[in-house]
């Protein structure tokens, strides 16, 4: 990739949310998370640690905000003065939203974070110089910085625990930013198999690690372009459109309001993750 190519074909490398000129082709990976099913058990987070070679940083570094939970469970409490056990916790699994028009991508000084043709927000560790602009500009705060060289100096995987590391993706070293990849190593593997067999990836053929372990099946993942995919059906059913920043259904006054929403949609990030609102006791 020469610099002239980079400059003349800038729009190809910095894909915005799909437009008439740049529609999604075979794939657009998307997710939906049903908060009504989520029990806040943290299995998704643990699975993510195991799948993606995330270091367990320990209590002290966690308190400093140096943790690496690509998938984290945010807790919210009902604010009506009830005591602890009856507070009514609500959980929200937060991960990289793979925005179609990602704020992190535009601020990277070295182009280390880009949009891929299949709608993923990629982070390239080799190119990252650790300016952390992307993290500053991410409204979801889902980017995590390697403040230490965890594999060597911090020794988070002492022998023989290094044997558990996933060989399909790199172990990051000090000074690079990292974030949820939608388990890109799994996506690429199944896309490769499908390509060899001359077809597209079938819905359900590929699962992200968090989806795979979710005991209540709250997470749905798939190809939004595929009309038979469950995730696309859910998006359609909830009348959430990927390409707009204000869903028309939210303006309507309906008795049975649809539950689907995307977080901070009004910032025009066009996130690829849809959440299904938790049904509250008061609403039933």
């Amino acid at each position: 990739m020469s610099i002239t190519n980079l400059l003349t074909n800038w729009s190809d490398f910095r894909q915005q949310h799909p437009s008439a000129a740049h529609p999604h082709r075979e794939y657009k990976w998307a997710m939906s998370i049903d908060l009504d099913s989520c029990t806040g058990c943290n299995a998704c987070s643990v699975a993510c640690y195991a799948e993606n070679n995330l270091p367990v940083v320990g209590k002290e570094k966690f308190a400093h905000g140096h943790s690496h939970h690509w998938m984290r469970i945010e807790r919210y409490w009902d604010n009506d003065g009830r005591e602890f056990a009856d507070q009514g916790a609500q959980f929200l699994p937060m991960l990289c939203q793979h925005c179609e028009s990602a704020p992190c991508e535009t601020v990277c000084p070295v182009g280390a974070t880009n949009h891929t043709a299949d709608g993923l927000n990629s982070q390239v560790y080799n190119r990252c110089v650790g300016s952390r602009y992307c993290n500053a500009n991410c409204p979801y705060k889902v980017r995590y910085f390697n403040w230490y060289n965890y594999p060597t100096t911090e020794n988070v995987w002492p022998e023989p625990m290094n044997q558990q590391l996933n060989p399909d993706l790199s172990v990051r070293s000090k000074g690079v930013m990292e974030k949820c990849t939608f388990c890109v190593q799994r996506l690429r593997a199944s896309m490769n198999d499908a390509r060899t067999q001359g077809r597209l990836v079938i819905d359900g053929e590929v699962q992200t690690a968090c989806q795979q372990v979710c005991p209540t099946g709250a997470i749905t993942f798939g190809n939004l372009v595929d009309p038979s995919a469950k995730v696309g059906k859910q998006w359609k059913q909830q009348q959430v459109d990927l390409n707009i920043d204000k869903q028309p259904k939210d303006a309507e006054e309906k008795a049975a309001k649809l539950r689907g929403y995307r977080i901070l949609e009004e910032l025009r990030t066009y996130p690829s993750v849809m959440y299904l609102e938790q049904l509250r006791e008061s609403a039933v």
Binding site: A117, L120, V124, L169, S170, V184, R188
Partner: peptide, 10 residues
Amino acid sequence: GPNDCWQCHK
């Protein structure tokens, strides 16, 4: 050929 970074660098 594909030329997005995530084809080879993961």
